[in-house]
Write a protein that binds this DNA or RNA. Structure first.
Lengths: 361, 361
DNA sequence: GCTTAGCACTCGCCGCATCTGAGTGCTAAT
DNA sequence: ATTAGCACTCAGATGCGGCGAGTGCTAAGC
């Protein structure tokens, strides 16, 4: 066992994150194997790989190398007489150091760019983004919409609907509009409402929602008597609006049905719970939340998501931001066996396009 | 062949919509067969049916009757040595004349009633309805939301966002709020906007949207010069709002994943296209549109929907209305083999509860 | 004249054995 | 270090016999 590694001694050795050593050549084979497996989804045998790798070596040699890769836990064979399949760690290594992302084809870029109607509302833009993601990659596209917390208060307005109902309209700096109907016990005149909205808008305009919420609470507590009654009521109404808009951060998913195409997921049980999670959204949101601080494209492979449902899935995400302010996260969900080379640039570009479109507000 | 019908001559004969004759007893068997089939989804054999029907007849007799039913196209056998399965016409006859809907259990009624938060916004109520439908029946619940056309204009308000952008808020009589951001070439002062909204609200309040749209068009054409410029511009803005709100009639679907439980639909191809139709919504909407004039609970069985995707599905719908005004359609989609006895009252009650909740506006 | 027992028959399904082909690991030769 | 050769493994396809559920028909029974 002193040297079971089938590696030419002259070959460059590379050390693995896991601690092992691996030859350049073995990595080359791993790359070829994964690319092949991504292409047609079937275990790759030594003969095929020998042909694929372009190194003019015999299948027997390849077998030796594959045996090493297996020992390192980078590939596995579903059963004795099948080829090899990448493991999660195999994919990990692949995306981290082997992957050469293909630059994006110009016509596709153009197509994607035209997917965003310029000047549209942010909600529409976000829908476009998720539709594009799923359409172009044939996977499920996800976009987490701006967390309300990070939005900036712009103005608030009250509209009398009837004697006891007031419509509050909260406009944020990015042009988003939130409505809420408030039932009041006391009647408010239009003039009072106007006054209230002017007051609040002056007070909070330009602050982010977290700050607004904080001040609202403080002011309500402290200045209990100093304010006149109308302003007091205005503050109370404002609080209800702001509270109602809490946890507005939502998730848009498109192209879920795309996932039904993949045999590795073609299992009713799994699909059902997956789709269920998609409609519940909560868990997916939590997951995306974890990506929000990261820079650049993030990839979760298989169990890395720490979320059993997505064991056979990968998640490719990135943040989109306007003026260094992170607005949200977008990406795709698909089987671990997805075409990372193509998917990664698409996710990246979508984020940039979305950000650019949002910047126009 | 003069009399191949295995029917006691003393038995009451009933004529069928299709033209044939059938004995009361045969109908009783049909009913038992369908109920059994709905229960456990497997072809029903003569022995089982003999036991089930409670008539103390031998399997042989039952076989004769079943043979008649088959001749009439009410049941079919998947293959020689399987039992019988209801056909679409069988189900049709069943729901039309054999079905005894079970009165709704009180605790369920209570549960459903509490599913509607009193005084909530109509959007929330509609969501509750679709969630309830799918939750209680374990099928997919659909609710078509009020067609904007039929809604009644209540008030309109304009809010200045920036120099060139105005937020238009359209409130309908049922408390629904529609926003739209309008880009204007010319700057509008807050006073002008106030004036405009007063003017328009006075002009259109109480009219239904169809009427509003019509008048808007007429007035814009005819009174071209008689109005001052500000009002003119107000009308133009209003038109853009109303236009934008067109075809707002939308569809809410809940519990799609429930459909994955049924083996008769457990076919990736079919499921995929079904789910696709659910996200596209267009076709389902058209279908529901056809139910809008009907009174009471409507049932489409299998191909009756005229919509290939739903060949193995049934659709149970009813309208919900407030003060004799039809607001929309709701119901469930599920496999033809669904428990109509239970589903029909649920659909019915949901419609009533939703209507009652909406009436509070 | 219905009803029913009896019987031959059909046919899907299950388990079993067999065969094939792809792919492996090992060993010995180059 | 590489490779040809070989024995071996194993999933998947194919074919076969038996079983059981269910049918249709016929003839006997009430």
């Amino acid at each position: 066992m002193a040297n079971s590694s089938h590696t030419r001694s002259g070959d460059t050795q590379v050390s693995l994150p896991g601690g092992g050593q691996i030859s350049e050549r073995a990595l080359h084979f791993l790359k070829a194997l994964i690319e092949r497996y991504i292409r047609d989804g079937q275990p790759v045998g030594s003969r095929t790989l020998a042909r694929d790798a372009g190194l003019d070596l015999s299948p027997a040699t390849v077998r030796n190398v594959m045996s090493d890769l297996e020992e390192l836990g980078l590939v596995a064979s579903p059963h004795t007489s099948a080829g090899r399949v990448p493991t999660a760690s195999g994919y990990r290594l692949f995306v981290d150091s082997l992957l050469t992302v293909s630059p994006m084809d110009n016509s596709l870029l153009e197509e994607m760019r035209s997917g965003f109607a310029p000047g549209a509302e942010s909600k529409v833009l976000i829908e476009s983004a998720s539709r594009l993601l799923s359409g172009v990659t044939h996977l499920a596209g996800v976009v987490m919409v701006p967390r309300h917390e990070r939005e900036v208060f712009h103005q608030i307005e009250f509209l009398k609907l009837s004697d006891t109902r007031v419509l509050a309209i909260l406009v944020t700096a990015d042009g988003e509009v939130h409505n809420r109907i408030i039932h009041t016990d006391q009647e408010c005149s239009a003039a009072h409402l106007q006054q209230a909205s002017n007051y609040l808008t002056g007070l909070f305009s330009g602050l982010d929602m977290r700050e607004v919420r904080r001040r609202l609470l403080d002011d309500l507590k402290q200045t209990h008597r100093r304010m006149d009654e109308i302003m007091m009521r205005a503050m109370q109404m404002a609080q209800r609006v702001v509270e109602g808009a809490e946890h507005q951060d939502d998730l848009l998913i498109a192209g879920q049905t795309n996932l039904m195409e993949f045999e590795e997921l073609a299992n009713m049980e799994r699909l059902k719970s997956l789709f269920h999670a998609f409609t519940e959204k909560r868990q997916i949101l939590d997951l995306l939340d974890r990506c929000i601080e990261a820079d650049g494209v993030q990839i979760f492979i298989g169990q890395e998501s720490g979320f059993e449902l997505l064991d056979d899935c990968s998640l490719v995400t990135t943040t989109y931001r306007v003026e260094d302010q992170i607005l949200g996260v977008l990406g795709v969900i698909g089987p671990t066996r997805m075409d990372y080379r193509r998917v990664i640039p698409v996710v990246d570009v979508t984020a940039r396009l979305l950000a650019a479109a949002l910047r126009q507000h």
